[in-house]
């Protein structure tokens, strides 16, 4: 496991797991940093399998949603897979209001996210 500022990255057999280290994912500078780190992760893998866990996240801004969409597009371009999980109800509501729950694949928890990943790692 490696600690890298606003996110924590763990390499697991089925996927690369990403967790947020801050409960407020709202600062644009921090969100840019998160985007850069996720982009590096995606670029480093021929076929990324990324699970982003929102455990502990209490606030999320529209800038963070934008970063997730950018990451999703990069993952998709490499025929990879992206899952979001462990999202608190008030954060899930943000995805629902913006209808991004129809674009980003959201699973209940880490186990469900891993189980939903198809194909070889």
């Amino acid at each position: 496991m490696s600690a890298q500022g606003p996110i924590r990255i763990s390499t697991e057999p089925e996927c690369t797991r990403v967790e947020f280290t801050e409960k407020h994912v709202i600062d644009e500078v921090v969100i840019r940093q998160i985007g850069n780190e996720l982009t590096k992760l995606v670029d480093a893998s021929p076929r990324p399998r990324l699970v982003v866990s929102f455990t502990g996240v209490e606030h999320l801004s529209s800038a963070a949603l934008g970063t997730l969409l950018t990451v999703m597009n990069r993952v998709r371009a490499k025929d990879g897979q992206l899952r979001l999980c462990d999202i608190a109800p008030q954060i899930l509501q943000i995805f629902e209001i913006t209808k991004l729950n129809k674009v980003l694949r959201i699973e209940k928890d880490l186990a469900a996210a891993k189980a939903s990943l198809g194909g070889a790692a």
Binding site: S62, L65, L69, T70, M72, I94, I97, T98, K99, V103
Partner: peptide, 17 residues
């Protein structure tokens, strides 16, 4: 931002929220 043609554009959701 929820229109089909805009849903994957990363920006433009602040006012909506």
């Amino acid at each position: 931002p929820t229109a089909e043609e805009n849903i994957e554009i990363p920006s433009g959701r602040g006012i909506m929220l």
